[in-house]
Amino acid sequence: MSKRATREAFGATLVQLTAEGVDVVAVEADLSKSTTTSTFADAYPERFFNAGIAEQNMIDVAAGLAVAGKVAFTGSFAVFATGRAYDQVRNTVCYSELDVKLAPTHSGITVGPDGGSHQMLEDIALMRVLPGMRVLVPADYFAACEAIRVAAVTPGPFYIRLGRAAIPAVYNESFRFELGKAYVVREGSDVTLAACGVMVERALAAADLLADDGISAEVIDVATVKPIDAATIAGSAAKTGAVVACEEHSIIGGLGSAVAEVLGEFAPVPFARVGVRDVFGTSGDPEELMAHFGLTAHHVAEAAREVLRRRS
């Protein structure tokens, strides 16, 4: 199957939602071609507003549109939409509990050559701590379409983490996104690989590598990082007795932290984090960077072997 970027789901799904009668609008900050909101702008120009290079205004204009009864999506890149406009997201969108859905693209190091300034590795952490904010990290294009749809029809603030790079499919058109559900995408008995976003496909590949060694890995797609599906994660941990969290994000504050919180409270087992180890990104080809920062299937498999050594 051909690879597709999760960002490609953004504009196209907004077009579909509008055609179906959902009253969505989009506010962008001069990145409509990169985020694909231009697709929506072309189809429904009266529903698209460009704030120019002004991300704080973008978020609060969306908040105002939500106050006026619209379902307002915002674009821009993850680094700007969350970092530069954090106060706007916190004090207006979340504090007023508005129907604003942040769906910025270009999260993580798969942004590639633009380098560390544009590779957002702290966004899950920033969004996860906000009261009322739901955090969705789709694993592929199909999951991204569904995540956008769920956010559009569920009241209140959402953060949907989208990426720039074309990635392999984990699902197909029949995938349905259920808010708050972690998907067991491969069953196993020896170790749990809990992943989100681009790392789901890599965790599945790691499970293949581990199978060659006779290790049975269970792979969970934690598509909703908040509210997290504690029952599925703790249940799997209790079954396998070892967990590895995998994310294209800092190991601090993101999925790894969320899973650690669940394990610490409900199922303490040997645990390891695969992620970017408290450093900024750097320029390079996406795949090169994934290897450089330790985010390949081989790294995931090695982390699994390491927790298994600790368990025994």
């Binding site: 609008v25 205004n57 105002g64």
Partner: peptide, 12 residues
């Protein structure tokens, strides 16, 4: 932030 919010309401 208020003027941005007011812009959004006015548009909406």
């Amino acid at each position: 932030q208020g003027l941005s919010i007011a812009c959004g309401i006015a548009l909406g």
